[in-house]
C-alpha cells in the first residue's frame, strides 16, 4: 500500500502532549488547576487589588469581625486579614514551589542513580541519606541560619535539603524493581548509556509515586516554614505567611475565631486543589489510562 504516513496516524504526540489531553478530560484536576492559578494570581496582584497594606495598623479598630470594609475582618492590630492572607500566600506558595522543586530534583536524581548503579555506589549514597535523616532537623536549620544569616531563599533551600531524603528512597526502590524488567536489559543491549537509560526509561516509569509524594511534600513544606518562623528563624512580623497567620490565629482562637478560620481555609483550599491536580497528573501520565 502506498499511503503516505501522515494520513494514517496523528503525528507528533509526545508523552506530555498525551498527558495534557488526558488531564483536560479530568474535571476535578482541571478545577484544582484553575483554583491554584486563581490563588496564585490573587497573591501576586494583591498590592494592586487591595486598598490596605499588610503592615498598616489600625489600633483603634483592633480585632474586628468580617465587615463590608474588611471582608475577612482584621487582626488584633487592626490589619486587614484578607490582605495579610494574600501577602502570606506569596511566601507560602513560594516556599512550597521552590523547596519542593529542590527536593524533587535532588531526590529523584539521587535515588535514580543509587537504584540503577546498585552495589557499593548504592550503599554509599543511601548511607549518606541515612546520616542526614538522623541529624536533628532543627539543629541543622539553626546551624545553617547562624552560619549564613537569616535569608528567605536560604530557608527554602534548607527545607528542600531535608525533604529530598524520602523522595530519594521512593525513587530508588521504584528504580530497583524497574531495572529487573527486560526493557531495561533491552535498552542496555541497544547500547544506550546509563544516563540515557535512567532519563528515558527509568524516571518516566517511576513518575506516578513521585507525583503523589510531591503533592504530599508541598503541604508539609508549608507547615515546616510555619514552624521555623514560629521559632523566630524564618520570616518575621510584620511579614506573614499562612503558617505564621495560623500560628497567630491559634493564640486568639477563642475570642477571634476568624483569625484562625480564614488562613486555615486558604491553606486547606490550596492543598485540596493540589491533591486533585496531583491525582489527575498521575492518571494522565499513566499511558495505560486505567482508572479502576
Amino acid at each position: 500500500m502506498n499511503i503516505t504516513t501522515s494520513e494514517v496516524y496523528e503525528r507528533g504526540t509526545s508523552l506530555w502532549q498525551d498527558a495534557w489531553i488526558r488531564l483536560r478530560k479530568n474535571k476535578m484536576a482541571v478545577a484544582g488547576g484553575i483554583t491554584l492559578i486563581v490563588i496564585t494570581l490573587l497573591c501576586v496582584l494583591v498590592p494592586f487589588l487591595s486598598p490596605y497594606d499588610y503592615e498598616q495598623q489600625d489600633l483603634l479598630l483592633g480585632a474586628s469581625a468580617p465587615s463590608t470594609q474588611h471582608w475577612l475582618g482584621t487582626d488584633v492590630f487592626g490589619r486587614d486579614l484578607l490582605t495579610r492572607i494574600l501577602f502570606g500566600g506569596r511566601i507560602s506558595l513560594l516556599v512550597g514551589v521552590i523547596a519542593t522543586s529542590v527536593a524533587l530534583i535532588i531526590g529523584v536524581t539521587w535515588g535514580a542513580i543509587a537504584g540503577y548503579a546498585g552495589g557499593r555506589v548504592d550503599a554509599f549514597m543511601m548511607r549518606f541519606v541515612d546520616i542526614v535523616y538522623a541529624l536533628p532537623f532543627m539543629i541543622f536549620v539553626v546551624l545553617l541560619m547562624v552560619i549564613f544569616g537569616r535569608n528567605l531563599f536560604l530557608l527554602f533551600l534548607v527545607i528542600g535539603a531535608v525533604e529530598w531524603l524520602t523522595m530519594a528512597r521512593i525513587v530508588r526502590s521504584q528504580v530497583q524493581s524497574l531495572k529487573q524488567l527486560e526493557f531495561i536489559e533491552a535498552a542496555i543491549s541497544l547500547g544506550l548509556s546509563s544516563w540515557t537509560i535512567i532519563r528515558r526509561h527509568l524516571i518516566p516509569n517511576a513518575i506516578g509515586p513521585v507525583i503523589v509524594y510531591t503533592t504530599l511534600t508541598i503541604p508539609s513544606v508549608m507547615l515546616l516554614e510555619a514552624f521555623i518562623s514560629f521559632l523566630g528563624l524564618g520570616i518575621q512580623p510584620p511579614q506573614s505567611s499562612w503558617g505564621s497567620l495560623i500560628a497567630d490565629g491559634v493564640e486568639t482562637m477563642e475570642e477571634f475565631p476568624w483569625l484562625l478560620i480564614f488562613p486555615g481555609l486558604a491553606l486547606s483550599v490550596t492543598l485540596f486543589a493540589l491533591n486533585f491536580l496531583g491525582d489527575g497528573l498521575r492518571d494522565a501520565l499513566d499511558v495505560r489510562g486505567a482508572k479502576d
Binding site: 508523552l15 536489559e185 533491552a186 541497544l190 547500547g191 548509556s193 526509561h201 518516566p204 516509569n205 499511558v287
Partner: peptide
C-alpha cells in the same frame, strides 16, 4: 566494558521472552 561495547551492540542484538516486560510502557 559497557562503553567499549557500544559499537558492537549495533551488530549483536537480543529478543526477550516476556513481551509484556520487554517494552517500555511509556514509549510509543
Amino acid at each position: 566494558n559497557q562503553h567499549a561495547m557500544k559499537p558492537w551492540r549495533r551488530r549483536m542484538q537480543m529478543i526477550f521472552q516476556d513481551p509484556y516486560a520487554s517494552l517500555n510502557p511509556r514509549m510509543t
